[in-house]
Design a protein around this nucleic acid. Structure first.
Lengths: 224, 224
DNA sequence: CATTGTGAACTCATTCACAGCG
DNA sequence: CGCTGTGAATGAGTTCACAATG
């Protein structure tokens, strides 16, 4: 091991410019490893993991190589051990508190979403601006709060990741509230790009874009 | 104009290897243009559009340049005209029929989702395997069908895009059904990667991955 | 003369190919 | 012997810089 990028939580040298796609794939590898462990596998080769995740085997090794040497030559990677390492790398080896703004159909779905809870992403607060909804107990048993109390709730409940599931017209306003409350990570489900300062990170989940990609391809790749 | 890639629906030369990211951005530009038209703008420069979409101005021009010459030097792009062109490029100048499988919270949310309907993505069928749900009128007024009738429904209703909102364990099975029924485009909301033949295109919407990216960054970019 | 359109330069990411090693 | 780890080669995508032009 060569004094690499972040893993331990202890030593923490600046990661040598790791492609964002690498992080995405690590998340994928992790999920695949979970399934493999469930199926009883003890070790896995980069070839096999690559095939399962539909990437190039060298890519798997390079991705992991950014963070350390986790494999055994001639054998492969220990399924359980590699999971632990990736958890550390991605910082999903602990719980994270989410605050969801916009309790419509989508927001409600998220509040109850199994895959979130089971992975340690806890929805600890729900917000809306609709007086009809405020004060009600929303899905998942969480009280729906007034959006104006966001700042207070962030501090009280230690909300670390903001989730925006409002209509697009409200998205920027909500983003500003999160930034103001020092929430540095936002998951944005609205189909517009919000503007935030550099200290705040945004990931967009935009199914309109994905559908547009599909229609483009349907039209071009096949002779639609 | 230099005999470029796909636009008209008439002439249709093979697009000269257009980056996928370009398609994603076109979808973004389009949405931004809608907002601008609503706000009364008649023209827009690549600089302004770039700023709004948080990309480089040259990127905007290059992206559009793959498909033709839509601007006027010294002036910019006509907001309305450029929308029309992008609609043609992305093939969103007509309606598309979707079939949604897995009518849980998320599937239900999609069936009623405004941004889908208003953009011409019509959910024409809903499927589930739960006998309790089958036959019920689901959200959006659509009858929930037995998953085993998928093939029949695809043909009867001309479903062109399949949407998977099942638990991960069912995702591959549903994907196989879609492929079998000659559906060539799938929007996959489950957090695993499904395997399909080359003729079928898949776009994944995976918020676990996005959350993992955020936690990774929180941990590394700031001194978490 | 402001702004587009685009070859060329550059930066970033992926894949190859093989040395290193259990 | 098989599989990892990694520098080097390749490839893709972005940005620069400026000529072209309404």
């Amino acid at each position: 091991m060569k004094g690499y990028a972040a893993v331990g939580g202890t030593l923490m040298e600046k990661a040598t410019n790791i492609p964002k796609a690498t992080i995405t794939r690590l998340s994928l590898y992790y999920r695949q490893l979970e399934l493999m462990e469930f199926d009883g596998y003890r070790t896995v080769s980069s070839d096999k993991l690559a095939w399962l995740c539909q990437v190039n085997p060298a890519q798997v090794r390079k991705d992991l190589g950014y963070f350390g040497e986790f494999g055994v030559r001639g054998v492969g990677y220990d399924v359980k051990e590699l999971q632990e390492q990736i958890k550390k790398i991605l910082a999903i080896n602990r719980e994270w508190n989410l605050g969801v703004v916009g309790i419509g159909k989508l927001g409600s779905a998220l509040l109850q979403h199994r895959n979130l809870q089971s992975r340690g992403f806890k929805c600890v607060a729900a917000f809306d601006n609709d007086p009809e909804k405020i004060g009600q107990i929303g899905p998942g048993g969480i009280e729906i709060r007034d959006i104006n109390e966001l700042d207070k709730a962030v501090r009280e409940l230690n909300i670390e990741i903001g989730v925006i599931t409002t209509p697009p017209s409200a998205a920027q306003y909500v983003a500003d509230l999160f930034v103001e409350a020092d929430v540095n990570a936002i998951l944005n489900f609205s189909p517009i790009r919000i503007q935030v300062p550099d200290c705040c990170m945004v990931e967009n989940i935009d199914f309109t874009v994905k559908l547009d990609i599909l229609t483009y391809k349907l039209r071009n790749e096949l002779g639609g």
